[in-house]
């Protein structure tokens, strides 16, 4: 089904790993001059991913394409920089998407099944204007679509027929992009702790690239003093409702408390926010806030619910422009705080 040219296009496939195993190459071979095209290409992949968030295609040297991908991944993993790994995974996944969307349904079907273990059917259905090539099993669809924000990916907006979600060829390629990204991130998280000698200088050089393009890893995440102006509309609304003595349902209260805990508001301030509630009990509120902050019970600090959850439970309120770029109220807060203060590290690629 797949040719060597395919493996060069999609070096994350299981078949590509098998191919490399068959070549019988060890990490020490990398130092030999024969491998310089591989190393060069590996570094180019990294440099492009870090600088532009994209990796361009090269089709000339198929072996270099296939071999350079795991080398890039290895170098990056050895830097231990997770944000760079995520950026690389995204860049490679996007590159794959551009190629996948031009493949035949048969090839897409094969890749989805063999590398990613999907269950899907070729359906050739046209219930309306659009033509659908695939029915994807619900679980495989959802695992990937939950990361995608456009309304067209929401399940109620899909055709769901006996457990199969209809998808066009192009949509299948887009869902596979998510799968590719996840696979690359997972792959980079299980690698040797020690740096193989031939790669030492490459790892150092890549660290330099990461600093250059992604900035110094900084502990700056959130403003040190909670900044009310940076809060998202839903949280402001919750605070206003409480202040006016309106009833706020459980999910709203949990959202507010977990949001405030996570932006580093003090316990006293959080309890104060709940004070105007008509059923306010200082003891209960304090207990619950401590629980959410991870000081009680399971000792887990709770994070703020995702925007999608808030939509489902009717907590989302008048989403604005920043809302369309984020998936959690805390990210809104980070974004807005950065805009307000006009500083902070370079924005991580989305």
């Amino acid at each position: 089904m797949l040719t060597r040219a395919d493996l060069a296009k999609y070096p994350f496939l299981n078949e590509a790993s098998d191919y490399i195993k068959e070549l019988g190459i060890s990490i020490d071979d990398i130092a030999s001059p024969d491998f310089s095209p591989v190393l060069e290409r590996a570094e180019k992949r990294l440099e492009e991913a870090l600088s532009k968030g994209r990796v361009s295609n090269e089709f000339g040297n198929e072996n270099a394409e296939i071999l350079s991908f795991p080398v890039s991944n290895l170098i990056l993993s050895l830097t231990g920089e997770e944000r760079a790994q995520r950026r690389f995974a995204l860049a490679e996944a996007k590159r794959a998407y551009e190629l996948l969307r031009q493949e035949s349904p048969e090839k897409l079907d094969y890749i989805a099944r063999t590398t990613f273990g999907w269950k899907l059917n070729k359906i050739d259905a046209q219930p309306g204007k659009r033509f659908y090539d695939f029915g994807i099993s619900l679980a495989d669809y959802l695992r990937n679509s939950v990361h995608l924000k456009e309304p067209k990916w929401k399940l109620p907006n899909r055709i769901l027929d006996h457990g199969l979600v209809y998808a066009t060829r192009e949509e299948l390629a887009r869902l596979l992009e998510e799968e590719v990204r996840t696979k690359i991130v997972d792959r980079s998280s299980r690698l040797p702790g020690e740096i193989p000698k031939p790669l030492q200088p490459k790892v150092e050089r890549t660290r330099g690239l990461i600093t250059k393009w992604l900035g110094v890893p900084s502990h700056y995440e959130l403003p040190r003093v909670p900044s009310p102006e940076a809060m998202p509309p839903c949280v402001k609304h919750l605070i206003d409702d409480l202040a006016e003595g309106k009833n706020v349902q459980h999910m709203g209260r949990f959202t507010l408390a977990s949001f405030l805990v996570n932006i580093g508001a003090g316990e006293e301030d959080i309890v104060k926010a709940f004070k105007p509630a008509s059923d306010f009990s200082e003891r209960m509120t304090r207990y619950q806030v401590e629980h959410i902050a991870g000081k009680r019970g399971g000792r887990t600090k709770y994070t703020c619910p995702m925007c999608t959850t808030l939509k489902t439970h009717g907590v989302c309120y008048k989403p604005d422009d920043i809302c369309s770029t984020i998936r959690n109220p805390l990210s809104y807060y980070k974004s807005k705080a950065r805009i307000l203060t006009g500083k902070g590290p370079k924005r991580e690629p989305s």
């Binding site: 695992r143 939950v146 929401k154 109620p156 907006n157 959850t309 489902t312």
Partner: peptide
């Protein structure tokens, strides 16, 4: 949870356009 929320939204037609 996120996947289940999509299923709940489907049954309620929440967000159906």
């Amino acid at each position: 949870e996120e996947e289940r929320r999509e299923i709940a939204d489907y049954l309620l037609a929440q967000g159906l356009d």
